[in-house]
């Protein structure tokens, strides 16, 4: 554990709390892509299967359980509790274009041909693109509630902080995970446009609006 990874994880936690807070206080999941949230459940469940057979640390265990539980809870909020506020007609990204290629990539690039290894790889690739339905929805509507942008910023900060974490681990442990690093760079890259608007508009007190 190093400071980059720790604050990355904290940022990830914060993003989830921000999202749940937004849904509860506005009593609405407007502006949130259900598809992206489903993909996160798939990411966490496939990656954290190792909860069943390996122990890393209490920190690791608690975080994994939290990420699985909170992502399922968000699906419940969107599909049951605040169902009328969820508008599938603007959540139109075709997730099969993400899941299919990620499955193929996982079969090619993995650390061993075991079901758990391929699923781990799959979860890494899928996480790197899971935000796309959400960003696509944002692009379509052209604007977002400020709290939704804070959610996305915290989520983007999480993976951004993992990059210095890997650089640190390379120098301190001589350790590189090419699958995680490649997917992580892609994932962070997807946030660059969003970050630009977030820093130049939202943090200056303006509404998040994309140019027409």
């Amino acid at each position: 554990m190093n400071i980059f990874r720790f604050f990355g994880d904290i940022s990830h936690l914060a993003s989830i709390f921000i999202l749940i807070h937004k849904i509860h206080t506005s009593r609405s999941c407007r502006g949130i892509s259900f598809k992206t949230q489903v993909l996160y459940v798939a990411v966490f469940v496939t990656r954290y299967l190792d909860l069943l057979y390996s122990w890393v640390s209490l920190y690791n265990f608690v975080m994994k359980v939290f990420f699985i539980a909170s992502s399922c809870y968000i699906l419940y909020l969107m599909k049951v509790r605040f169902r009328p506020t969820n508008d599938p007609s603007i959540d139109t990204f075709r997730v099969e274009y993400l899941v299919g290629p990620c499955a193929v990539l996982a079969l090619i690039f993995n650390y061993g041909y075991a079901v758990t290894e391929v699923l781990w790889s799959f979860s890494i690739f899928l996480e790197s693109v899971a935000i796309l339905p959400q960003l696509f929805m944002l692009q379509r509507t052209g604007e977002a509630e400020t709290i939704t942008t804070h959610y996305l910023a915290a989520l983007g900060a999480y993976r951004t902080l993992y990059i210095p974490n890997w650089i640190y681990r390379y120098f301190s442990e001589g350790y590189v995970d090419p699958i995680a690093v490649t997917a992580g760079l892609v994932q962070t890259g997807l946030y660059l446009d969003f970050f630009y608007v977030y820093f130049t508009k939202v943090l200056q007190g303006q509404k998040f609006e994309l140019p027409a």
Partner: peptide, 10 residues
């Protein structure tokens, strides 16, 4: 695994 994967990360 090869020991190279970052399974201890979240």
């Amino acid at each position: 695994g090869s020991g190279q994967s970052s399974k201890d990360e979240l």
